[in-house]
Design a protein around this nucleic acid. Structure first.
Lengths: 142, 142
DNA sequence: GCTTGAAGCTACAGTGGCTGTAGGTCGTAT
DNA sequence: ATACGACCTACAGCCACTGTAGCTTCAAGC
């Protein structure tokens, strides 16, 4: 029987994060000690490892919930699992493409600035005027 | 004199977002009409355009605040502007590298699965067991 | 058995960058 | 004069945690 702290160490998760997963129903409610502290077994360890690993691969908690559900019905076709993973792959690829465009634009902007005063800094000029941009980057983030 | 809605349309920003920027002190408090509605001029339009464009390039609101402050003292050296932009570039490059690793791992995982039942789906197996991974991806997100 | 200090508990607030909603007021065209 | 869209404030919600305050429990050492 593992305490929450031991489980945390074994999986590289913070204690609060485990409690959070329980709160949102991603981890099951574990047994408790006489004094009311959580006690975990191997099943929970595996489950948490699955969650953490999926998170490391960028899956959302919603996607992980879906993967867990699928994992619980072993006779089903794994086409749906494939679909979830494919979707994740596409999202990752889209983010890479967007960041790549940003990288190019940032590099160009930085490379162009030969000024020494803020007054005629190319970087600030580019930021002020979108027209100076080649790409039409749309949304921030990712 | 522009209404907030017009300003929003001109800059491709949502009305709430403009009010949010004002709330956190990124946009100045504008003048008001007799009835208390916000009225904007060209200065504010430029300022908002600067913010939006910087956001499109992935700068955080904190970084944008810094760039604005720097922009307000035109006699200073632009080395600091350069540093902010460089930092952003490095962050973008780091995110790309990480996502690239994820992409490879996801692709491998998906490519390996030849099963038709969930029971022996390679994707789920990989998610269950980190040892199956080549890379040691660490943190999620980005 | 007793003490002590680490680790656990609940409940709640905060992060970033918005977005959405409720319930009311203002501006302007007809 | 009226209708209706746009505006107002205030607040809750999103994701995936993370941190804090103020307690209680556990386990090791004496």
């Amino acid at each position: 029987m593992l305490s929450i702290g031991t489980l945390a160490k074994r999986t590289g998760t913070k204690v609060q994060t485990i409690r959070y997963y329980e709160q949102i129903g991603l981890m099951p409610e574990p047994g408790r000690s006489a004094g009311g502290q959580r006690r975990y077994g191997a099943l929970e360890l595996d489950r948490l490892a699955f969650i953490r690993h999926s998170r490391q691969l960028g899956f959302s908690l919603e996607a992980i919930r879906e993967l867990q559900d699928l994992s619980d019905s072993p006779e089903r076709s794994c086409a749906q699992v494939d679909a979830v993973a494919q979707k994740q792959l596409h999202e990752v690829e889209a983010r890479i493409a967007r960041l790549e465009a940003l990288r190019v634009e940032l590099k160009r902007m930085i490379g162009e600035c030969r000024a020494d005063r803020v007054a005629n800094c190319r970087i600030l000029e580019v930021l002020r005027d979108h027209e100076e941009c080649l790409s039409d980057h749309d949304r921030p983030g990712s």
